[in-house]
Amino acid sequence: MLENLKNLCELNGISGDEGSVRDYIINQLDGKAEYKIDNLGNIIAFKKGAKTPDKKVMISAHMDEVGGLVTYINQDGTLKFEAVGGVDPRVVFGRRVTVGRNNVNGVIGSKAVHMLNDDEKKTAVKFEQMNIDIGCTSKEQAEECVSLGDSVCFCSEYCLFGDGKIKGKAIDDRAGCAIMLKLIEQELQYDTYFTFVVQEEIGLRGATVAAYSVEPDYAIVLEATTAADVPNASDEKQVCKLGNGPVVSFMDRHTVYSKELYELCFDTAKEHSIPCQTKTMIAGGNDAGAIHLSKGGVKTCAISVPCRYLHSPSCVIDKNDFENTYELTKNLLDRIFNNDI
């Protein structure tokens, strides 16, 4: 599962340009599940289990990540870009990026710190002020390397560090994808649908159509969610903590989660001695927002890996939380099928 997470995080796939992630996943699915690719680029996979249950369960994770898009080429050969998804501009300035399908190296810089006036020294550089320098000296030369609409992706190697921590870009939500791949690798008790969806970061768009196609009775969204357990956040604002297990929310900005499933999650966790926590703030949102409103409504829960510095090139999770998210999901699935709900 860690191997898949590493490989998935190192692939580039901003919203709307998830092709390389999709190809990797399809490659892993071959022979293990039936699948189709829908019109938006979602992978809708079906894994036959030992039995066919009387209810349809769908597990979903998104393939896309935040990044940018080239919007303009300046006369001096540098590139203007726009953010894709919710990105704090302060985690983008001064970084390396790769641009477009040819993976052109670029850096994001501006005038030197020495040249800033007092106001500028205190103010973050806005996206509209940023430029990507790929080393071209004219617009004409740059046009030979990149095109408008090319993806801009963070450069950040996946690595293990500290006491069992993982750092990488796009852990949101390749962690969910990796957990689904592990579930698909094994023999399942019951038929289950797995959707690897596109365009979550720009408005839960892939999940909207995937849920429509699958028509599930129950849905489990696998995600990475904001952990703010850092020194300058007070305890009640820390939301959730690394090392305290998967996060199951009762409510966020898009969804009031199924109370039944919420309780079943904690009950399952208790039964199997899996650490589990809830979010202490009503914040964020994920594909559950689209899935639970699909057609006549779907009972939905979200199980998330707590993740520090979400939507930055340096997402940080705890290896145990990641593994426990898998364990909880697997056991929850059994409980749902075994009519504990």
């Binding site: 919710g86 703010a228 956040a233 939301v239």
Partner: peptide, 14 residues
């Protein structure tokens, strides 16, 4: 560390 957006009143400030 970076403070996540939901806690950040002002992402313009350095």
């Amino acid at each position: 560390i970076s403070t996540p957006p939901h806690l950040e009143k002002d992402s313009k400030k350095l």
